[in-house]
Design a protein around this nucleic acid. Sequence first.
DNA 1: GCCTTGAAGTTACCG
DNA 2: ACCGGTAACTTCAAGGCG
Length: 832
Amino acid sequence: MKNALTIIPLRVVFQIIKYGKMGRQTTLKIGVHELKLRFWLIDINYQIINREPNILMWGVSESGERVLVVDRRFRPYFYVVPRKGVDIEMLKAKIMKLNNVRSPILSLEAVEKKYYGKPIKVLKLVTLMPDQVPAYREAIKNIPEVEDCLEADIRFYMRYLIDNDVQPSGWNEAEVVEHPSPLKASVDKQYILTGNIRRVESSILPQLKTVSFDIEVLNPLGNPRPEKDPIIIVSVVADGKSKVQFIADGNDDKPVIKSFVEFIRKLDPDIIAGYNSNGFDWPYLVSRGKHVGIKINVNRFGGEPHPSVYGHISIIGRANVDLYDFAEELTEVKVKSLENVADYLGVMEKDKRILIDWTEMAEYWNDPSKRPIFIKYAMQDAESTQGLAEKFIPFGIQLSSLTGLPLDQVVAAAVGFRVEWFLMREAYKQNELVPNRIERPYSTYKGAIVLEPKRGMHENIAVLDFTSMYPSIMIKYNISPDTYVGTDENIPEHMVWKAPEVGHKFLKSPPGFFTRVLKALIELRAKLKEDLKRLSPDSPEYRVIDERQRAVKVLTNAMYGYLGWTGARWYCKPAAEAITAWGRELITKAIDIARGLGLKVIYGDTDSLFVSYVPGKIDELIRLVREELGFEIKVDKVYKRVFFTEAKKRYCGLLIDGKVDIVGFEAVRGDWAEIAKEVQERVVNILLREGSVEKAVEYVKGVVDDVRNHKLPLSKLIIWKTLSKKLSEYEVEAPHVAAARKIVERGGKISAGEKIGYVIVKGSGKLSNRAYPYFMVKMEDIDSEYYIDRQIIPAVLRILGYFGVTEKTLRLGREPSKQRTLFDFFASGRKK
DNA sequence: GCCTTGAAGTTACCG
DNA sequence: ACCGGTAACTTCAAGGCG
């Protein structure tokens, strides 16, 4: 069955083939068999061939062949919106005067579209070459009768995907013939589209050839220079198992680069995965290649990787995926090194692998006895990368087919752009025009409510939350840019929903663009979840559909934020503002209902409420919220004990299943020293599980002692902070900025977005002066008192302070009289 | 000139 | 380059004092 014929001869069509050099073309009409080809789309681009734009779709056929499907027929276009009252035929004539042989207007027709839900007649201008679109736009938008030009900034191949409903990272069916004049491309078969192309729904993935790789550069200062520093090792994992390494002989890396390039060309992978490969490996390979005279011609056209949209590197015909892009969304991992992420995901345990800091690399490489360890380390990096690829790429594939962005782009694109491409596809299907992206000043609006927590230890607390609060609000009140009723519009009150506090109005009907999209997304997710129930959790389809429902969820939840993003095409501040206003009203009313039932409300944030766990009353609360407010609320979790300080957004609790939750505190932040986080976590555990303040205090004292005596690894003292902008842009010399400068002074390279790991050394004056990059410092230089006074004690007192523990106690000795047991502090349930 | 204080700058979290 | 709300740290400059 696997080798079943997938290319079915359909009918004989007449194919017009042009050949010959420019200006001397001969046309030939021949009969060829048209076939129906099913292929999974990996990448798409376009190329001008014979003075025509050709859409090139790179994919895998059902029978596992690499295919290139070419469509020569598609032409770029955009819309011209006439000003009110302008005669469209007159405008058409005026625009046609711009027509010329060099950039011909292929057609200019009036079409009926909708713009923000309103019917509108616009002109659709079709040109020959994609680059003529912006040229015509610039010329036309200044015509006095023209209101605006729309959709003139959509990349040609994206236009193609949208208009033909072709899905990247998914199956498509195309009516094709074998390409009469195949291009020089590394594929098994080439076809040319003669009929239709359409998407095919399927939860089966093709066998994709995947390669994971990692390069090692000998860099003495942490600042690899392509003119000098060789690529000493390239490690590769092919198809999830075969491991290959290219290792330099001495410092000559020419053979390494050359054989790696040959290897890729020969293996011809569909997906190439790296870790920070957009930021480092590919750019370095290309510039180093340039320096030593080797072309990194690894794309399916025999060309080099090149920088493309969203800061990613494009390799034509393949999906070049930088797994770091996924890691960025893993908020649990604070320092996103490959080994940390792999460890977190269970791909490769950190303490069971070789770790070599870049500072030690030269030493390992130059010492013949240590070099094998270094080589093994490099291989482990590629293996970790491969492990990450297996964890992340299935989700990326679903995001890609859902949003319509090619895999390599969707991974690199920010959330806002993913939402936007999804919306643009929907807009096309619904005959809606896409608004232009315009530059707007940043603008704020009021957000959610956060309740003042009831300080102290509470027992038996349920956490209730609204199910998808913002999407539900959007659907219920039909909030969308096209249903928004401006203050100058006169619409009867009964026809609109009016937001509390802010007073923004939205038409009750018809359903707006966002409402329709959200309903469809929510229905789709429900359907996918149903499908999951019918599948075995170990089946490949289960994984595919599960990742798909996750992708749908992510998109649904980002819809509100998108409306409030000033960079959004469908930006609509009143809509975003109304959503949060209704959200505030909702939670306030829910609190009132809870209190009315006699439930104590301990805390709440945006869409959640912490209330005393009285099952009967909770059920009643859920019912009342459903019936009186029209929203769904559910019990998310139940705490046996939960502890709040006076601070919002910070609490810790013991769940009924025995798990300890820490929210917001230092222990879950990435910018505190590991030792402080570790101690705080342990203290929280002792307190919540055992209820012993004394035990916690004793434990802290022990650690304080260890720190004083330097009885811990330096790594636990490193404070990691992101350098969010260029060094020159800082107004204040913060410690991590000062540490970063010290790296630069030493010859290292630091760029915006990097995490700086620093420690505080002994001395006087500003902290910044005493902040040094961790690799420049020895344990004996460490200022232990800083770590005790400004890291461990504050983190610990945040919790223990409530129980009467003082700084003095922790530093010097105990004050038993002042300490009470945990059970003296229950703020509820004990004093009847 | 020294010390206190509060504003400003900065980061990372919560939902 | 999805939102606002929030805690907490360090720096920095202004203001008070002598």
